[in-house]
Design a protein around this nucleic acid. Sequence first.
RNA 1: GUCCCAGUAGCUCAGCUGGAUAGAGCAACAGCCUUCUAAGCUGUGGGUCGCAGGUUCGAAUCCUGCCUGGGACGCCA
Length: 554
Amino acid sequence: MNVLEQTEETLKQQIRDAVLRAGLASEEEIPEMVLEKPKDKRHGDFATNIAMQLARVAKKAPRQIAEELVNVFDRVKASVEKVEIAGPGFINFFMKEDFLGSIVPNILQEGEAYGRSRAGNNERVQVEFVSVNPTGDLHLGHARGAAFGDVLCNVFDAAGYRVEREYYINDAGNQIDNLALSIEARYLQALGQDVPMPEDGYFGEDITEIGKQLREEYGEQWVQKDREERLAFFKEYGLSYELGKIKEDLQAFKVHFDSWFSERSLYKENKIGETLEKIATYTYEKDGATWFRSTEFGDDKDRVLIKQDGTYTYLTPDIAYHKNKLDRGFDQIINVWGADHHGYIPRMRAAIQALGYPAEKFSVKIVQMVNLFADGEKVRMSKRTGKAVALRELIEEVGVDAVRYYFVMRSNDSQLDFDMDLARSESNDNPVFYVQYAHARICTMLKQAEGKGLSFDCDADVSLLTAEKETDLLKKLAAFPQVIADAARMQTPHKVTQYVFDLASLLHSFYNAEKVLDTDHLERTKARIALMQAVKITLANGLRVLGVTAPEKM
RNA sequence: GUCCCAGUAGCUCAGCUGGAUAGAGCAACAGCCUUCUAAGCUGUGGGUCGCAGGUUCGAAUCCUGCCUGGGACGCCA
């Protein structure tokens, strides 16, 4: 707990004591104390709405309650300078002047750890994301899921959760058979044969490339072979080719996984059979298929588990997979899915309940679609036509920093317009530059300070930081750990982009208003250097959570 | 028809576990570089928070209905 949080705790306690002393409510009647930090400075450093909340219990008007409370409030103990009652009954607290400055040495001491907290109580969280079928390139839509999932994990980590990142590899089933068929067609085409692609085949350029590669390596060798053998080989060849590319792309995007879970392993270890047995009471036979009575748990309709032809639907191994995840003892398992899969949620939740697990442990974050604009036109994204812009291409043209920042800038619930031309132009409309520039600016100042022999001094008198732009910065700096904790609790990583942007904005504003390096005011200069150091650390920590670099100069 | 997401400034979006005068970026307009990086700053204008009810001291926020846009409703994955 830092100095600021202690200040806040003490204040809450003093308010509680005052309520009791004034006889406004009993211990149990006091609602959970919420201290807000008013946006408007005229409303003080902290404000509480307790008087309004107590109106019913105390059977008095909020403003009267507030007055009685303020009369017995112990200002000295709470380090409060001034208390005001305002509006419908808000109580505004103005703290003694120097309480904010203490955050600076605090940040300097914590360094890279500033912003981290124990808010998550070491809860074990697993996030499964991306999990793209190894049948084509990662493209724009996947990139959003990748950025969102990765930053969400970073946020969890910083907020004191134990987090694991996992990728589920669909290396079994229909889509992989289809991959083999598509490769076969492209291979034969590469040899000049006029064969059609399978109707549900994969039309990406990567498949054509695989076909060519096979011709280079094996010539016509595979034409004569038994078809089953050929397809089996193409399947493995394609799988490792596609998976290799996915891994490369993710690495380039700075997204790393703790584990890669193979669907095949579920077959090998008979996990699917076990799972089916476990939910047997909720299954039945109809029309030659095996059904899961998911309607019992609120799903729209029952779902097929084993098809007429004896093979599993996609759902069946997926249930086994989720059982496996829950058996690993996570407190929470979170899936990041595209909006087109939202209809899948009720059946999976039903399956988890049928397995006897609490549904609350399972949740899905839906990431809405990305609309791509290029040459002023909306580009349709489709895996089938292979027209989508690949993540790799995007990174090359725009850069990892900008792509990551852009994709977590907005709520996952909102659709995202991604303008290729704008991103490609590297114009200053891109907010990531704005934030990075703030960091680089500070680095330059600190370097110059060093050159002038004004290197950072631990004994800086931070109580000198009382200019308006300075207190604005101090307040923002102090809020950082709570921002991270909130972003984790509410699973809203975009709050972090919002935060670094706001902090950068305050820094730029301060920079233009006040001079930092001023040999005529040595003490103030020292204090400001310390402040700059604190801002730099906080910006860098925020950017690190986003997976965006913090450049020393630009 | 059912379900999910969105609807807030000209545009793109924050704000949504109820709180004070609804915010930011871009665009528009007017200023600021002999001074630590002008990729920056300062100021101005711009709003029936989709519509209609309801809940209460108080609603952009919660509830109900409707409208509009996007998505999903396979023995595909």
